[in-house]
Design a protein around this nucleic acid. Structure first.
Length: 408
RNA sequence: ACGGGCGUAGCGCAGUCUGGCAGCGCGUCUGGCCUGGGACCAGAAGGUCGUCGGUUCAAAUCCGACCGUCCGUACCA
């Protein structure tokens, strides 16, 4: 991509209505645009990064047998009335709207109800199990107060997978695989070191659920981390019994602020009972399907990476999610020699399948460098009169700042 | 939902206390000069001072309501 053609512009200052670091940097660098409080559009750079995160999650979900679907955001109230989650008393952050005929519909904040209802058409027998279905979906939550940029919006992207098993044992086995897939996802997007499997309240069907919490002061959750065992406990459930269950000592725990980037939990038969999702077992007996739910917000993950990896100059993306692999910065000379060499290099790299953002703009070196730092592509190649004389390219690592000269 | 802050050019702000010509910086456009860290010089364009109402000879400025937005607290299946 030639930067002169990229429609987004960087800006020197953050808009005054953003305090959250992730939103400030992502807006300044031209990744996102704020539409209103808690609702952000993704621009070309931002969409590329979001798509990389989505791609990683998709690979890991497919690897554990997940099948992707795309459900509707509009929700039929009858599924939600069946589980008692339609009323505003039960769920206080519904977005609801009306059809022309006056019937009320909702905008989905999660999809247990409609998917359970959908699966009734496709699960009849134990032979139809197990199944695990997932989607990437825009979710709507009518938060009383949006905050923290893309870490907590009213509209956001969510990957939600739901598992369907014949018995608790099969469910537990899948749950464990999903947990490991999540660990892998957070490693791959560059958050592995600071993301902890965190024990949280389990609801009525299991003792615990598991949250994936990334350490950052920008987070809203307080967790207690055992760094040696690489596990954590959410403050909400911290007590002696839990400590005993997990085999950790209170003295080993450190209090930390964290953002919940993922959450998995067992649903038991709550939804299958309420919506009548049953199957015939080998003896011909009808039994409810055992379910689980597994969520990750890709947009929140993106904000979290921005939050924890950035430095004072701007964003710093891990290679796996960066919008481009190389930022080619050309410092043009009068004669046009640098321009020709840079154009050639850009063509060559692009043909090889390398994703290159080529700064071919007619502006000062300082501006190009500042923009490059702000945008945060992991590797910067500089081509100038100076480097051409040595028939070389200056290669700089955005994260470490390490510079080396490589042959052109 | 409660408490607090903010709303003036595309962006960041001053001006509001004490009513009296709509300002500055960045960005944009023109021309010049530059070209390894957001350079410099000259010129130009750009405004419903959030909205509605009130007070006044006169309102960005005072009063009221509303809207938007941020922070904190509460909430977060």
């Amino acid at each position: 991509m030639r930067q002169s053609a990229l429609f987004t512009k960087t800006r020197r200052e953050a808009p005054k209505d953003e305090v959250a670091k992730n939103a400030q940097l992502l807006i300044r660098a031209g990744y996102i645009h704020k539409e209103m409080a808690g609702a952000y559009s993704f621009l070309p750079l931002g969409l590329r990064t979001l798509d990389k995160i989505v791609g990683i999650i998709r690979e890991e979900m497919d690897a554990i047998g997940g099948q992707e679907v795309h459900m509707t955001a509009l929700q039929d109230r009858k599924n939600w009335e069946a589980t008692g989650r339609w009323s505003d008393e039960a769920v206080d952050n519904w977005f609801k709207t009306k059809l022309k005929n006056g019937n009320e519909v909702g905008l989905g904040f999660t999809h247990e109800e409609p998917l359970t209802a959908l699966m009734r058409d496709h699960i009849r027998s134990f032979r139809d199990l197990p199944a695990s279905i997932y989607q990437f979906q825009t979710k709507f939550r009518n938060e009383e107060r949006a905050k923290s940029g893309i870490l907590r919006g009213r509209e956001f992207l969510m990957k939600d997978l739901y598992s369907f098993n014949a018995d608790p044992k099969a469910h537990e086995a899948f749950y464990e695989r999903a947990k490991q897939a999540y660990v892998k996802i957070f490693e791959r997007v560059g958050l592995g070191d600071r993301t902890f499997v965190t024990f949280a309240s389990g609801g009525s069907f299991s003792k615990y659920s598991h949250e994936f919490q990334t350490l950052t002061d920008a987070g809203e959750d307080t967790i207690y981390v055992d760094p040696k065992k690489k596990i954590a406990v959410n403050k909400e459930v911290l007590n002696d019994e839990v400590l005993k269950d997990l085999g950790v000592e209170r003295s080993d725990l450190k209090e930390e602020k964290a953002v919940e980037v993922g959450n998995i939990f067992s649903l038991g038969t709550r939804f299958s009972d309420a919506l009548g999702l049953q199957f015939k077992d080998a003896e011909g007996k009808s039994r409810p399907v055992i379910m689980g739910s597994y969520g990750i917000g890709p947009s929140r993950v993106m904000g979290t990476i921005a939050e924890v990896m950035a430095d004072d100059k701007g964003l710093v993306w891990p290679e796996s999610v960066a919008p481009f692999g190389i930022h080619l910065v050309a410092l043009y000379d009068e004669a046009g020699t640098v321009k020709k060499a840079a154009d050639d290099l850009y063509e060559k790299l692009t043909k090889n399948g390398t994703e290159v953002l080529y700064d071919d703009r007619e502006c000062s070196a300082g501006e190009k460098f500042s923009d490059s730092d702000l945008i945060g592509i992991p590797m910067r190649y500089v081509l100038s009169e100076k480097t051409l004389k040595a028939a070389s390219i200056e290669k700089k690592d955005r994260r470490t700042g390490k510079v080396e000269m490589i042959g052109l």
